[in-house]
């Protein structure tokens, strides 16, 4: 029995990745790990794009992946800067420690 790997599998994997990322964001309090989880979510989307683009035979999906990667890099730069600034204030990267503003 051969394992035929089709678009469905990739999409399934993508969904699993997305879920993993989401759960990561939901459950972790370390800013860096949260950030990494978000990267997983974006990559899940990328996987979906690639899968669809290949299935349809359309270039736009691949282009989109490139753009998402670029944007993710930009976000990473900004995100890490913010995390550094956070750490300077509180000496922690626990996002739960930052709740001066509420109500």
């Amino acid at each position: 029995m051969t394992l035929a790997v089709g678009p469905g599998h990739y999409l399934f994997l993508s969904a699993i990745l997305f879920t993993i990322g989401t759960v990561g964001v939901l459950t972790r309090r370390n800013a860096i790990i949260i950030f990494m989880s978000i990267e997983i979510m974006l990559n899940a989307a990328n996987l979906a794009f690639v899968t669809f683009a290949a299935a349809i035979g359309d270039l736009a999906g691949f282009v989109m992946v490139l753009l998402v990667i670029a944007v993710a890099a930009a976000e990473a730069a900004v995100g890490l800067a913010i995390i550094v600034a956070m750490f300077r204030h509180r000496q922690t990267v626990d996002v739960g420690a930052f709740n001066v503003m509420r109500g």
């Binding site: 964001v25 800013a31 949260i34 950030f35 978000i38 976000e75 900004v78 995100g79 913010i82 995390i83 600034a85 956070m86 204030h89 996002v95 930052f98 709740n99 001066v100 503003m101």
Partner: peptide, 9 residues
Amino acid sequence: IEGALKYFV
């Protein structure tokens, strides 16, 4: 910073 963090995350 806290605002930026929340917005960003």
